[in-house]
C-alpha cells in the first residue's frame, strides 16, 4: 500500500516541479512585465498545489492529519497572496509603462 502511495507522491511532485520549471522559463523568456507575471503566478500556484498534493500522504503518515491540513492551508494562503500581489505588481508595472509613454519615451 505504501509503495503505491510513494509512487503517487513521486509522480505528482515531479509534475509539480515541471510546472515550476515552466514558470521559471516563462519568467526568463517572456518580453514584458505583465506577461511574465501572468506566467509566473499561474505556473507556481499549480506547481505548489501538486507538490502539496503529492506530499499529503507522507505528511499524514508522519505527523497525522492536522499537519496535512496545515499544508493545504499554506497552499490556500499562497493562492490568495500571490494572486493579490501579482495584481498589485501589474498595477505598478502598468502605471510605470503609462508614465513612460506619456513622457514620450524620455530617459527613465
Amino acid at each position: 500500500m505504501t509503495l503505491a502511495l510513494n509512487i503517487f507522491t513521486l509522480l505528482v511532485v515531479a509534475a509539480g516541479l515541471l510546472f515550476f520549471i515552466v514558470g521559471t522559463v516563462g519568467l526568463l523568456r517572456l518580453p514584458d512585465a505583465l506577461a511574465r507575471l501572468h506566467a509566473l503566478t499561474k505556473a507556481d500556484n499549480i506547481g505548489l498545489g501538486l507538490v502539496v498534493l503529492g506530499l499529503l500522504p507522507q505528511a499524514v503518515a508522519l505527523w497525522g492529519v492536522l499537519a496535512a491540513a496545515k499544508m493545504v492551508g499554506i497552499w490556500l494562503l499562497l493562492q490568495v497572496s500571490s494572486g493579490a500581489v501579482s495584481q498589485l505588481m501589474a498595477e505598478v508595472a502598468y502605471r510605470a509603462a503609462q508614465r513612460k509613454d506619456s513622457e514620450g519615451g524620455a530617459a527613465p
Binding site: L77, V80, S81, G83, A84, V85, Q87, L88, E91, R95
Partner: peptide, 18 residues
C-alpha cells in the same frame, strides 16, 4: 503612495485575520 486598490483591500481582508 497610491490610494489602496481593490486587490490590496481583498488581500488584507483575507490575510490579516489569518
Amino acid at each position: 503612495p497610491a490610494p489602496p486598490s481593490g486587490a490590496l483591500d481583498f488581500l488584507a481582508r483575507v490575510v490579516v485575520p489569518v
